[in-house]
Design a protein around this nucleic acid. Structure first.
Length: 929
RNA sequence: GGGGCGAUGGCGAAAUGGCAGCCGCCGGAGACUUAAAAUCUUCUGUUGAGAAAUCAGCGUGUGGGUUCGAGUCCCACUCGCCCCACCA
């Protein structure tokens, strides 16, 4: 009598053996083909992992094991994203150094990973808070700091080259080039002045360094208004502010004026869009990234401003010299064809020209509005559907296309951070401008007449009594230009846009422009628990540390609490700050920096001479298969792509995209439904606070790691969000029990064939034996296809079917034959990536040499997998009527003849002559009468 | 407001444009057992007819379309989830 399957016993045994043998240690670069399969490295938290996390790690482990057996050199590593606020905040609460909690949390993760039998190469483990790791994060920071993006070469090059050019010809050639190639708008800080070579040479070193900040790929901004989290006491990036609240703490953010460090990701906007065409990623993620970069095309147009003192006495504009001043207001528009419909302008309350434009009469009101905008700029200002607010500045501008005198307002619906921070308002064709015009009684001029409704008015000026008609006009996106000077009569769209831009260029008041929604990547954090920024503030400004001075280590201190002043706690540690050359930068880097290159480090994780050796890097990278949550669709994945491109430009890496193929796993929800206030039922996320977390530990304790692994794969389609089903693991466990019994109890079901003579047996069983081989090899075929398709649930169901087929085969008396042994051998090898412990145990019990995980994948036998008969369904007039069984190699005519002769087909045809008989090879016969 | 994804039995789901519902859960029946559990066998979308074998009809959110043939492709809509959003 065989013993029972006891997962607890065999799993612990094999896990220890694998570990002591370093069974999953990855070889360095060699001549084999490589496969790099990577999980997004986790942020270890005190709560540990749930069964939801395992949804990511189990399938990738299955793939890693599968590729090893297929003969690939497989890199399947794990590490920890350790810096950052959650650990630091927990540490402050518990009054310990965050490095202590980090160790505790990540050790617990490792314990859980090992419990699940995951085949990571633990010798490659690292933690982003190790100085041996962030040493090289700092090194990459310096590469960015010492580089700028030369638009003419289309890549990052050394700032030292830029300095040479500035000494010879100033900024002229660069700025001219950007003007002519507006897609390079991001390579230089907005508003950087033109500079002659003489002016450059006349600067002292400090001013020169300051000027170069406008070019560096890692740069420190001028003092500017930033979002600030008053609870976590840290600056918050725009993209981390959701509905006016800090993403992590949920606190309404306030504003603070600060100087911050950035990476100039906007220099790479166009390449970040273009290269998306070369990766195998979910369409959804590609779309999100494109939207995030947010490219739009249009024109930048300059509106001249009335001098304030002239406003009182000039009513009719006839001579441009009456009101022109040196610099006007620049606006960005995607619809330059609607310039003729601009009836007022709106500036952001923070726009630098507001003070100059504002008339004495309006000064008090304008300043009050600016103050209010700053104070409320938080939650409410970003809320949708908010009633428009704004104030007239008392100033006027001239619409350059038609000379119209139009009022200038300020309003908080215009954002300083997008475009130029100023808009021309075209209320007839923009919903927001229309709402604003309606509220403040500003005029509306229609310049596109819709083709959908010919009765739409085409008046030049109108008041707001015809509101409904204007909305109709606004909604007519296609139409004919009216009231639009030179372009009147043209169809709206490309031609009129081009003509309008040409007109602006000719008149010298506008030019074609590209705009990107994406902003530069804010990396400063005023916190202790992060990678120190390797910069020193000296008499000559901010300068890079020498690479030999790295790493700049975090000081081990007892008190590292954040300050309320906007200063990093590191600033309060004199021995950290003060150096002979000057004062260290005290901000640390956001964790996005750490995670932007960790995948490269896995190729050579303990190198203390370099971030990675070129040999290992070029062998292992890029990542062949990257798997993780869709929540990193933009930030992490975009930042990693930018760093990769910079390192490529500088010659450090030989690839431009870090992740060839990407897949996102679906979430696992709590198994219990809850009702909302309307009585509608839904499943909740698992969370510590709701107390509904199911851990791998508890599932493994009851059913074993192999059953957990099986159910994680079987639960649903990999990418689908799905509730956990507590009945699901026992179901998979039952299957594993069946595998156990069929492998170890091969003679137990051997009843049906007992009376057959040994000699006669083989012949009588011949067809069944062929069928068994067929099932085995067809299973293998489906298994491999499903794995390639990330369809793990059907891998499991295929294996279950195969197991069921083996039970039938045993019942039919096939146990003990060589075909049976072959089928069991295939079963075990196919099982190894899914249930590695059970497969190893059964492999050993069958007397095979250790370890099944070092065996090769079975050779596919196409002949054995081939069907000799196939069943062809027959339809008559689109309805299924019968099926015919034919030889797999039967010809079309023979099959058609058989089909037409089938009983139910004859009945359905009812004596009529078929008009048409269609045969789809191997699939179907369709008869039309 | 913009974009994306999805909707198939009581439940998780499967299905290169070709037999809808594989596999599993839940549930029913039987065998084994003193009994239960476990295990094994078997049924299990729905309606109608039949003692039964079986036969006929309906059926993949709704309405259209393409096709010999649609869960799958196209158009319009409903609902759900996700992302972005006063982005000019």
């Amino acid at each position: 009598m065989m013993d029972k399957y006891n997962p607890q016993e065999i799993e612990a045994k094999w896990q220890q053996r694998w570990e002591s043998d370093a069974l999953y240690k990855t070889a360095p670069a060699d001549e084999r083909p490589k496969y790099f399969i990577l999980d997004m490295y986790p942020y270890p938290s005190g709560a540990g992992m749930s069964v939801g996390h395992a949804r990511n790690y189990v399938p990738t482990d299955m793939i890693a094991r599968y590729y090893r057996m297929k003969g690939y050199n497989v890199l399947h590593p794990m590490g920890f994203d350790a810096f950052g606020l959650p650990t630091e905040n927990a540490a402050i609460k518990e009054k310990v150094n965050p490095s202590i909690l980090n160790k505790k949390y990540s050790d617990n993760y490792v314990r859980q990973f090992k419990l699940m039998g995951l085949s990571y190469d633990w010798t490659r483990l690292f933690n982003s808070a190790d100085a041996s790791y962030y040493h090289w994060t700092q090194w990459i920071f310096l590469q960015l700091f010492k580089s700028w993006y030369d638009p003419r070469q289309g890549k990052a090059v050394a700032v030292s080259e830029l300095e040479l050019e500035l000494g010879k010809q100033g900024t002229g050639a660069i700025l001219d080039y950007i003007d002519a190639h507006p897609e390079h708008i991001g390579v230089i800080t907005k508003g950087t002045p033109r500079l002659s070579a003489d002016a450059w040479k006349a600067m002292n070193r400090k001013d020169q360094n300051h000027f170069l900040m406008s070019f560096r790929l890692a740069y420190r901004s001028e003092p500017m208004t930033m979002w600030w989290d008053p609870v976590d006491n840290v600056v918050v990036a725009n993209e981390e502010v959701i509905d006016g609240r800090a993403w992590r703490s949920g606190t309404p953010v306030i504003q603070r004026v600060l100087q911050q460090w950035y990476f100039r990701i906007t220099a790479y906007s166009q390449r970040l869009i273009d290269d998306l065409d070369t990766v195998d990623w979910p369409e959804k993620i590609v779309t999100m990234q494109k939207n995030w970069v947010g490219k739009s095309e249009g024109a930048e147009v300059e509106f001249k401003v009335y001098k304030v003192e002239n406003v009182q006495n000039v009513q009719n504009i006839t001579n441009i010299q009456n009101f022109a001043n040196a610099e006007g207001i620049h606006v960005y528009t995607t619809r330059p064809d609607t310039l003729w419909g601009a009836t007022f302008m709106v500036l952001s309350p923070e726009h630098p020209l507001v003070a100059q434009i504002t008339s004495p009469e309006q000064k008090a009101e304008v300043e009050a509005y600016q103050t209010r905008a700053t104070a409320t700029a938080d939650a409410e200002r970003m809320v949708e559907g908010k009633e428009k607010t704004g104030v007239f500045t008392g100033g006027y501008a001239i619409n350059p296309v038609n000379g119209a005198k139009i009022p200038i307002w300020i309003a908080d619906y215009v954002l300083m951070g997008y475009g130029t921070g100023a808009i021309m308002a075209v209320p007839a064709h923009d919903q927001r401008d229309f709402e604003f015009a309606r509220k403040f009684g500003l005029p509306v001029v229609q310049v596109v007449r819709g083709t959908t409704d010919p009765s739409t008015p085409s008046a030049g000026q109108a008041d707001l009594q015809t509101t409904d008609e204007w909305i109709a006009a606004y909604e007519a996106k296609e139409g004919v230009m009216v009231n639009s000077g030179l372009i009147t009569g043209m169809p709206a769209g490309e031609p009129s846009l081009d003509a309008a831009i040409a007109f602006c260029v000719q008149g010298g008041f506008g030019k074609r422009r590209v705009n990107y929604r994406m902003r530069d990547w804010l990396i400063s954090r005023q916190r202790y628990w992060g990678t120190p920024i390797p910069i020193i503030h000296t008499d000559e400004g901010e300068v890079a540390l020498d690479e030999s001075e790295l790493p700049i280590k975090l000081p081990e201190v007892a008190n590292y609490s954040p300050t309320k002043t906007g200063q990093s706690p590191l600033a309060t540690i004199p021995e950290f700050v003060n150096t002979p050359r000057g004062q260290r930068e005290t901000d640390t880097m956001a964790t996005w920096a750490c995670s932007s290159w960790y995948f490269m480090r896995f190729s050579d994780p303990h190198n203390d001479k370099a971030a990675f050796s070129p040999k290992e890097l070029s062998y292992w990278l890029p990542v062949d298969q990257y798997v993780g949550g869709a929540e990193h669709a933009v930030l992490h994945l975009l930042y990693s792509r930018m760093w990769t491109k910079v390192l490529y430009d500088l010659g450090h890496v030989p690839f431009v995209e870090p992740f060839k193929s990407l897949r996102n796993q679906g979430m696992i929800l709590s198994p219990d439904k809850v009702a909302d206030e309307n009585g509608r039922e839904y499943y909740q996320k698992m969370s510590k606070s709701l107390g509904n977390v199911i851990t791998p530990d508890e599932v493994i304790a009851e059913h074993g790691a192999d059953a957990l692994r099986g159910y994680e794969m079987f639960i649903s389609d990999f990418s689908m969000t799905v509730p956990w089903n507590t009945q699901g693991v026992p179901g998979v466990r039952r299957w594993l029990d069946r595998v156990w019994r069929i492998v170890l109890g091969e003679d137990e079901g051997d009843r049906g064939a007992k009376s057959v003579e040994p000699g006669a047996k083989e012949d009588a069983l011949r067809p069944a034996l062929l069928a068994l081989r067929r099932v085995a090899y067809q299973t293998m075929q489906r298994y491999e296809k499903n794995t390639a398709d990330f369809s793990f649930n059907t891998v499991i169901s295929t294996m279950m079917e195969y197991t069921n087929a083996l039970y039938k085969a045993r019942e039919a008396g096939l146990a003990g034959t060589s075909e049976w042994r072959e089928a069991i051998d295939i079963l075990l090898r196919l099982l190894a990536p899914i249930a590695p412990h059970m497969a190893e145990e059964l492999w050993a019990r069958a007397g095979n040499a250790y370890s099944i995980h070092q065996q090769s994948w079975p050779m596919f036998d196409a002949e054995a997998a081939k069907d000799d008969e196939i069943v062809i369904p027959v339809q008559v007039n689109g309805k299924l009527r019968d099926r015919v069984t034919v030889a797999a190699d039967a010809g079309e005519e023979a099959i058609k003849t058989l089909a037409l002769a089938a009983d139910k087909v004859v009945k359905a045809i009812d004596g009529k002559t078929p008009k048409k008989v269609i045969y789809v090879p191997g699939r179907m016969v369709s008869v039309i009468v």
